[in-house]
Amino acid sequence: MPFVSRSDDGTIDGVFEQLQEGTAEEFLSDDNPELVARLNAPPKVSSVSARQFRLMLRRAGLLDLVKAWVAQQDGETQDAFEYSGTFVKDSPMMSAGFKAMGFTPQQIDEFFTAAASL
C-alpha cells in the first residue's frame, strides 16, 4: 500500500510502498542521495529542558553573555528565561537571542543537538 512521507513543514519527502517486512530506505532509488541522507539523518532537536539549555550555555562560555542580554530585554523575556522549563528553538525569544549572539541556523541546530545530549 503506498503512502506519502511529509517533513515537519509539510513538504513531501517521498512516496513509499508499505510492506509487512522491510524498511522504507529499501525502496529508495540511489538517484536521490539527498533524500536518502535526510531519511538517515538523526531528527533535528526542536526543544531542550532548561537544565540542558543552561548547561550548554555554560559549556559554550555564553552563560554570562546571555544573562546580560536577557537583563536588557522586557519583563516577559526575563521571566521566560528565568522560569521556563523548556526552551523551544523556534520561539520568538530564542530567535531574537540567537540573532543577537550572531548564531547561524546551523549553529543553532548544533547547539540544540549538543544540549539535548546533556
Rank of each mutant, 00 (worst) to 15 (best):
P105S: 09
G22Q: 07
D31I: 06
D109F: 10
L63E: 05
G22H: 08
L35F: 11
K44L: 11
T104D: 07
R6P: 01
A115S: 00
D31Q: 14
D109L: 15
M56Y: 00
R59A: 10
F87K: 04
R59L: 08
E82V: 06
S49Q: 00
P92F: 06
A41N: 09
Q18H: 14
R58A: 10
N32S: 14
W69T: 14
A71Y: 05
T113C: 04
V66P: 03
P42E: 13
Q78Y: 10
F111R: 01
G14V: 03
D9N: 08
P43Q: 12
E34K: 13
F81C: 01
N32I: 12
Q106M: 05
F3H: 15
Y83P: 01
V70W: 07
V70K: 08
P42W: 05
P42T: 05
N40M: 07
G102H: 07
G97D: 00
M93G: 09
F98H: 05
S47M: 12
I108L: 03
G61L: 03
V36M: 11
S84R: 08
F111W: 00
Y83D: 06
D90E: 08
Q73H: 09
E76L: 13
S49P: 03
T104K: 11
T86W: 08
F103H: 02
W69D: 14
E25S: 15
P2G: 02
L118Q: 02
F27C: 13
A80K: 09
L55I: 05
S91K: 04
G102V: 10
Q52C: 00
I12H: 04
E82P: 05
N32W: 14
P2Y: 05
R54V: 07
V88T: 09
F16K: 11
L39K: 11
L62W: 00
L62Y: 01
G14Y: 02
F111P: 02
D9S: 03
L39C: 10
L55K: 02
R51W: 02
V36Y: 01
L35N: 07
Q106Y: 02
S117M: 15
M94V: 08
M101I: 04
D8S: 15
L63S: 03
P2V: 02
A50P: 00
R38Y: 13
D109W: 08
A80Y: 12
G102N: 14
A41K: 11
A115H: 01
P105W: 09
P92Y: 05
L55V: 07
K44M: 10
E26S: 12
K67T: 14
W69I: 14
K44V: 11
G22R: 07
G97E: 00
P105G: 07
S84V: 03
K67S: 14
D74L: 03
V48H: 00
A96R: 12
V88S: 06
D64I: 02
R54H: 09
S95T: 15
T86F: 06
K44A: 10
L62M: 07
V15M: 13
L65F: 06
A115W: 01
E26H: 11
D13T: 08
E110F: 04
D64R: 09
D74F: 02
F3M: 10
L55E: 04
S91D: 12
L57M: 05
Y83E: 07
T77S: 11
R38C: 06
S95N: 12
Q72F: 06
L118W: 04
